[in-house]
């Protein structure tokens, strides 16, 4: 509690100064790229050719306009990404709460075995099953469909585990008993009592599943082949594959900014919950 106490060989003031310098350097390293992205998205192709400056120019709207009316269907890409990510987040959280509730609130044979099994499959990477997955989707006629990207989120072991941990400390069983005595049905108890109590956990996990679906490139690129169904990461890959030197570079930067900045803005608004959510998961996991 006393300020002047020197811990160890170094004076506390010096240690504090070093910490701040390192933190500021790391923050710079994290933000620098996005700053350059922003600056370059505001500059015209000609200005970009003349080298880097630190001051934004005036062509942001022009570049964005060119991107949205260019060869890549960025606007439909954004819409597709939004639809898939929002539905994924909804399916993932609702059904993960349901699965966690089944394990948490009921006693049935095989319950512990099922719980252990879900933990065991947690680590299976999606890439490992991609071959069988793509073949099966082709057979089921679900190629070029959003279903293979949304519905599998119902079985999300990681989200399930988070919900289960949250329930252990935040779901009073007595409340459910009381509702049951009042004659409430099990579905009503789940939707009317359990879900509202789980809202904080649902909010955190909805953000994470939205973002991971939004950023996902591997699976959508194997499933979606029609231009009007493609998501933003696939379009970014196409931008990379195009003969990019012929491109208007202002447009390239604007396209990247178009896929990155919405997430940054939402993150800055919700950062308190997101950073808190990561550490909450860590303490319990």
């Amino acid at each position: 509690m006393d300020t002047n106490k020197s811990t160890g060989g170094m004076h506390i003031g010096l240690r504090r100064a070093i910490s701040y310098i390192v933190l500021i350097l790391l923050s710079f390293l994290c933000l620098f790229w996005f700053y350059v992205l922003f600056i370059n998205a505001t500059r015209s192709n000609g200005e970009l050719g003349r080298g880097f400056t630190a001051i934004p120019s005036t062509h942001l709207m022009q570049n964005l306009h060119n991107v949205l009316h260019g060869t890549l269907p960025m606007m439909t890409g954004m819409r597709n990404s939004l639809v898939i990510s929002a539905l994924t987040a909804a399916f993932c959280t609702y059904f993960s709460v349901m699965t966690a509730y089944a394990i948490q609130a009921y006693n049935f044979t095989g319950k512990n075995a099922i719980f252990t099994f879900i933990l065991m499959i947690m680590m299976i990477p999606t890439q490992v099953t991609a071959l069988g997955f793509v073949q099966l989707m082709n057979k089921m006629g679900l190629n070029n469909s959003f279903i293979p990207l949304i519905v599998p989120a119902i079985a999300s072991p990681v989200t399930f585990f988070y919900m289960k941990q949250y329930m252990e400390s935040n779901l009073p069983m007595s409340l459910l008993e009381a509702a049951r005595i009042d004659g409430a049905g099990e579905f009503y108890i789940f939707n009317g009592i359990v879900l509202p109590l789980m809202v904080p956990a649902i909010a955190v996990q909805a953000i994470f599943s939205f973002v991971s679906s939004w950023n996902n490139y591997f699976t959508p690129s194997l499933i979606l082949h029609k231009d009007k169904l493609k998501t933003l990461p696939i379009l970014i890959a196409q931008l990379r594959a195009a003969d990019w030197l012929k491109f208007d570079m202002g447009q390239v930067y604007a396209a990247i900014a178009f896929s990155i900045f919405p997430v940054i803005i939402v993150y800055l608004i919700l950062s308190k919950y997101i950073v808190g959510g990561v550490s909450a998961g860590a303490v319990k996991g």
Binding site: C30, R240, V263, Y267, I274, V278
Partner: peptide, 16 residues
């Protein structure tokens, strides 16, 4: 700030 890059679309980050 240090958590921010974790949420960025990896493909767009690589393109950047």
């Amino acid at each position: 700030v240090i958590y921010l890059p974790n949420l960025i679309m990896a493909s767009a980050f690589a393109m950047l």
